[in-house]
Design a protein around this nucleic acid. Structure first.
Lengths: 345, 345
DNA sequence: GAGTTGTTTTGGAACGATCCAAACAGAAAT
DNA sequence: ATTTCTGTTTGGATCGTTCCAAAACAACTC
C-alpha cells in the first residue's frame, strides 16, 4: 500500500505476468491477448499504479514537457500569452513549466538550465530585454526553441510574432484618414525589435500619405503608465504640437490619456489616441481606447503548437509565423460611433 | 558534440576519472581533491554537460517540481495567485508545472494525474467548483497537497486562505460606521465555502451593531460583471431598498457600479459599494472601488512555501494558514477623502 | 618493511521503464 | 512424429544517476 509508489513489476506480479507484458499493455500494443490486458488493467487500478514517465524518458522516449520562459509576468499581455501556451499544451497532452525571467538575462539563463535539467523537450521563450546571443546559444543547443513576441537576431530558433508593422500602418492610416497630420509615436526606447517594427509601420503610413516624418514627434519613454504620462507635456508643447498619437502599447496609451485628460484636453475630440495590444483594460478606460489587437492568447497557442510539432517530428529547423492583428475602433481615436472590427487579411 | 546529451560518464572519461567521482563533484562533496574537482568542472563546461535530474529522482532523490492546478486562469485574481506561486518557487530552486482546470473536475483529475506521472513532488491546488472528495482522494495519496482559496471539506490536505470572515466583517463595519443600515450582500451562490465565510463575516458585523439580518438583502448571482449588473434592479426595488452593498468580489462590484450608474444612482454618494479581492481594475473604475484586499500573490507564495517545506521535510500533516486582509478605502464607499489603508492585526 | 593511519577514488548494483531477440503454446500442415 | 505457423509472452540489457563497500594511494610510525 504505502511502501512508495507501485511499479510495473508490482503490477506484473499481481496480474501473474511478466513486466514486459505490462509494458506492452501500457503501450496499447495489439499483441497482448484481451484476457491478459484486462487482468493487467485490473491489477493497475487495484494498486493505484501511476505511470513513471521519468523512467521512460531515460530510455529515450520524448518527454511531453515544455518550458515557457516569459519576460514579464506583471504585464497582463504576457500573462495572456502564457495562458495561451498552457491551453495549447493541454489540448495536446503536453504540460508546461512556468517561469518568469522578470527581464533579467541571468535569471533567464538559470531557469532555462533548470528546465533542461528537469527534462523539458523544448522551449517557448519571450526573451528578456538585453539578452545577448551568447547567453543562449550554448544553453539551448540541441533543443527546439520558439521565440514569441520578441526576436533575438542571430538566434537559431523559430519565431511567432504579430504583424507589428502592418498593425501600426493600419492604425496610423486610420488617424490620417480622420484628418490628422501631426501624429506622434509615443513610448518605448532603444533597441527593442518590436518597437522598431511598429515604428516602421508608422513611418510607412506617413509615407503613403506623403506626410513628412518628423523626429520631434517620436517620443521615447518607459513602457508603463508613467511613461505615457510623461509624454503628454511634450505633445502639447507649442513647438511640436501634435493632434494624435500612436502609442507603443496600451499601458503607455492609457497613461497618456490620463495625463491629457488631467491637462484639460478632451481625448477623442481634441486629441486622438491609439494603443497597441488591446488589453482588457482598454475597454474600460475613459474614453475607451482604440487599439491594435494582437490576441496574445492566440499568439501563445500558435507558438506552443509550432514547438510541439517540432518536438514530435524531431525537425528543429527555424520557422516563422506572423499572426494577423486587427484594429479595434473605440472612441479614443475620435470616431465614437464606428465600432466595427476590421480584420487584417 | 551532437550525439545526444553528454552524460556523467562522458565527463568522467574526459577528466580521466570514474563516474563516481563526477557524481561526488556534482553533489559538492568535500571528499574529492581540489585538483580533481577542477579537472571535472573543466570537462563539464567543455562538453556543455547538463545534469539529468530525472535519472537522479529515479534513484530516490526528491524532484524539485511542483504542480499548480488553478481553477480559472481567465480570472485575474487566480492569475496573480499563480504568479505568486511561481515567484516562491524560483526563490527556492523549485519549478512549477502550470495547469488550468477551468472549473472542470474531470480536467482537473487529468492534469493532476499527468503531473504525478511527470514526477511532481507536490501540488498547490485551487479546487474546481463541484469537485467531489472521491475525485481526489485516491489520486493524491502519498503526495503533499496545499489547497488555496477554496477548501474541499474532508480532504486530507493543507489549506491557505485569506481571512474571509474577518475581511467581510471589517468592510461591513465600515459601511455601518458610515451610517448605513440597509446593507446588501451581493453575488455568488450556493455551496461555495469562500462565500459562506464572507457571508458569515457580514452577518457578524450586523450582529455586533444590532442590526437584524434580512434575507431579502442577500442577492445571489453569477460571479461576473453581468451578475453584479443584474443585482442592481433588486437593490433599488422599493420593497427592499438598500443603501449599500458588500459584494462577493470586485468583478461583481464593478458590474453593480456600472448598472447603478446607468440607473442614475451616484455611487459613492447615494449608494456605497465595497468589493472583495482588490483586483487591479478596482483602482481604475469610476468611482474607484473600495475593496477588501486579499493579496493573491502573497497567498500563492505562502501556499508554495508551505508545500515546499512539506516536500523537503517529508511530513505531510495538513496545516492551515490564514492570510490577513486589508480594507482599501476608495471613494465608492462614500468617504472619498480618506485614503489610508488599515491593515488587519 | 610491515603496519597504521587518513585521504581519495572506484566498481557495480540499484531505480522504473522500454525493447529486442528468443521462447512458448497450440493448431495446422507435412 | 516432426515441422511450420500464428499468436502471446518473457528475460535481460539498457538509459543516467546515486550510494555503498571496498580498493588504492600517500604519509606516517614503529
Amino acid at each position: 500500500m504505502s511502501e512508495g509508489r507501485a511499479t510495473i513489476v508490482d503490477v506484473a506480479r499481481l496480474a501473474g505476468v511478466s513486466k514486459s507484458t505490462v509494458s506492452l499493455v501500457l503501450g496499447g500494443s495489439s499483441l497482448v491477448a484481451d484476457a491478459t490486458r484486462e487482468r493487467v488493467a485490473g491489477a493497475m487500478s487495484e494498486l493505484g499504479y501511476i505511470y513513471h514517465r521519468g523512467a521512460a524518458t531515460l530510455r529515450g522516449a520524448k518527454s511531453g514537457v515544455l518550458g515557457m520562459v516569459i519576460n514579464d509576468l506583471s504585464n497582463p499581455f504576457y500573462v495572456e500569452l502564457a495562458i495561451g501556451i498552457e491551453q495549447a499544451c493541454q489540448g495536446a497532452g503536453f504540460i508546461p513549466f512556468l517561469a518568469n525571467s522578470a527581464e533579467d538575462p541571468v535569471r533567464q539563463q538559470e531557469v532555462i538550465r533548470s528546465m533542461r535539467e528537469h527534462g523539458a523537450a523544448g522551449l517557448v521563450l519571450a526573451p528578456a530585454i538585453n539578452t545577448s546571443l551568447g547567453d543562449l546559444t550554448g544553453l539551448i543547443a540541441g533543443m527546439p526553441v520558439v521565440q514569441v513576441m520578441r526576436r533575438l537576431p542571430g538566434l537559431k530558433a523559430s519565431l511567432v510574432t504579430p504583424e507589428n508593422r502592418e498593425g501600426a500602418r493600419k492604425a496610423t492610416a486610420r488617424l490620417i484618414g480622420n484628418g490628422h497630420r501631426r501624429i506622434a509615436f509615443v513610448g518605448g526606447a532603444g533597441a527593442l525589435v518590436v518597437r522598431d517594427d511598429r515604428l516602421a509601420g508608422y513611418r510607412l503610413a506617413l509615407e503613403e500619405a506623403e506626410i513628412s516624418f518628423d523626429t520631434a514627434l517620436v517620443v521615447e519613454s518607459t513602457t508603463n503608465y508613467a511613461g505615457g504620462g510623461a509624454a503628454a507635456a511634450r505633445l502639447l508643447a507649442p513647438a511640436e504640437r501634435a493632434t494624435a498619437a500612436l502609442c507603443f502599447n496600451d499601458v503607455v496609451a492609457i497613461g497618456l490619456i490620463r495625463a491629457l485628460t488631467q491637462a484639460g484636453v478632451l481625448v477623442g475630440r481634441d486629441f486622438a489616441v491609439i494603443g497597441f495590444d488591446d488589453i482588457e483594460e482598454a475597454k474600460h478606460v475613459l474614453p475607451p481606447l482604440t487599439s491594435v489587437a494582437v490576441n496574445a492568447r492566440n499568439l501563445g497557442s500558435r507558438a506552443a503548437q509550432l514547438l510541439m510539432r517540432q518536438i514530435a517530428s524531431g525537425h528543429f529547423e527555424p520557422e516563422s509565423i506572423l499572426c494577423p492583428t486587427s484594429l479595434i475602433i473605440r472612441s479614443s481615436c475620435g470616431t465614437a460611433l464606428v465600432t466595427a472590427e476590421e480584420t487584417s487579411p
